[in-house]
Amino acid sequence: MSLRRLPSEERLLAYAAGTLSAPEAVVVATHLALRPETRVWSELGQAVGGGVLEDLEPSALGAGALDKTLALLDQPAPQEPTVRLDKTDPTLPAPLRGFELGPWRWLGPGVRVRNVLGPRDGDCRVILLKIAPGQSTPRHTHGGVELTCVIEGAYETESGVFGEGDFEEADPSVLHQPRVVSSKPCLCVAALDGEIQLPGRLGKLLAPFVKL
C-alpha cells in the first residue's frame, strides 16, 4: 500500500459534516488550503450534506418566524469577532490566519513550538512546530492521535517523506521521530491529543521545559 499523504475519505466527510473536533478541523483545513485537489472530497461531502438537508422532514416553525427574520434583513451584519492582529501571522495558510498565536518556545536543539490559541477539544489542541534543517524532534510516542500538516519544508519519518501540504495521521503505537530533510526549516501545524510522552533520559530532562 502506498503511503497516504491526505486525510482519509471518512475524515474528510466528517470535516464537511462539521463533526470533527476543532483542532482536527484546523489541520484538515490547512491541508485543503494547500492542496486544492483534495477539496473534491470535502466539497462532495458538502454536496451530500445538501442532499441530506433536502430530504429531511421539515419541522414546524413558530408563528411569526418569517416576519421576525424579515424584520432583521435590513440591519447591519454583526461585527466579526476581532483578533489581535499583532498576535496573528498573515503569512500562514488562510485557515490559520484568524487565530492568535502564543510565543515561540524552545523545545530542544533546532526545535521551536508555539500554540495556536482557540481551537481546543478537551486535551486536544493545535500547535505550530518549526524544526531546523537536519534536526529531529526528540523521539516521542503519542498519548492520542496526532494529525500533522506540513506548511513549509519537508520531513522524513520511518514511513517516508512528507512535503508541503502533506497530511500525516500518526499511529499512536509508533515511536515518532521526524527528521527535517528540506534545506529550509520545516514548519508544521499539528493537532495533539493528550500529553506527548518523551521517552528516555532526554525526555525527563526536557519535561520541565516542554509543557506541551
Partner: peptide
C-alpha cells in the same frame, strides 16, 4: 452551528 458551539471557528471554514 459550529460557531454557536465554539466561538471563533468561522474563520476556519470561510474557504468552504
Amino acid at each position: 452551528r459550529i460557531d454557536s458551539l465554539r466561538r471563533g471557528s468561522s474563520a476556519l471554514y470561510a474557504v468552504d
